[in-house]
Computed example of a mutant assay.
Amino acid sequence: MGRHRKRLEHLTADKAYGSKANRRSLRARGIPHTIPERADVRASRARKGSRGGRPPNFNATRYNDCNRVERAFNRLKQFRAVATRYDKLKSRYEATVTVASIVIWLHARPDRATSRSVG
């Protein structure tokens, strides 16, 4: 019988994936996407004038959310054990990621009093 096919609700990608072929393929499959336009493509379209076509739709809010998630993963990767996956067992690796997340959360808590803040 096979597995059920799932369609993406939305794709958010970096500028590197903004080629015409990728965008055309996504439109053909009916997948909405948020991909920023590269500066050279924007300049090329401007040079062509009215023949350059319309700029692709871009939802800045959705892209910023994606960027926030990416930065969170990059913060996790600052922990060597997370980045290199030193622990090969799934349960130990999950524990390592959990501990790293707790450390990040503790450092980012705005309600904690610091030594510099005098009340």
Rank of each mutant, 00 (worst) to 15 (best):
M1K: 15
G2K: 15
R5V: 05
K6W: 14
R7I: 01
L8Y: 14
H10K: 15
A13G: 04
D14G: 04
K15L: 09
K15Y: 03
K15E: 07
Y17S: 09
Y17W: 06
S19Q: 05
K20A: 09
A21E: 00
A21R: 12
R23C: 02
R23M: 01
R23K: 03
R24A: 13
L26S: 02
R29I: 06
R29P: 06
G30V: 02
G30C: 04
I31E: 00
T34I: 03
I35S: 00
P36A: 05
E37S: 05
E37P: 01
A39G: 05
A39K: 15
A39L: 04
D40G: 06
D40C: 11
R42M: 05
R45M: 03
R45F: 00
A46C: 06
A46G: 09
R51W: 05
R54C: 01
P55H: 05
P56D: 09
N57C: 12
N57Q: 12
N57S: 14
A60M: 05
T61K: 08
T61F: 11
R62Y: 05
Y63H: 11
N67W: 06
R68S: 14
E70W: 08
R71K: 10
A72F: 13
N74L: 06
L76R: 12
L76H: 08
K77W: 09
K77H: 13
F79A: 10
A83R: 15
A83V: 02
T84Q: 13
Y86D: 02
Y86A: 12
D87R: 09
D87S: 10
D87H: 14
K88C: 08
L89R: 15
S91F: 02
R92S: 15
R92I: 11
Y93D: 00
E94G: 03
V97K: 08
T98Q: 12
T98F: 13
V99A: 10
A100E: 09
S101T: 15
I102S: 14
I102P: 11
I104V: 08
I104D: 02
W105L: 13
H107Y: 06
P110R: 11
D111M: 06
R112F: 08
R112T: 04
S115F: 05
R116G: 10
V118E: 07
V118Y: 13
G119Q: 12
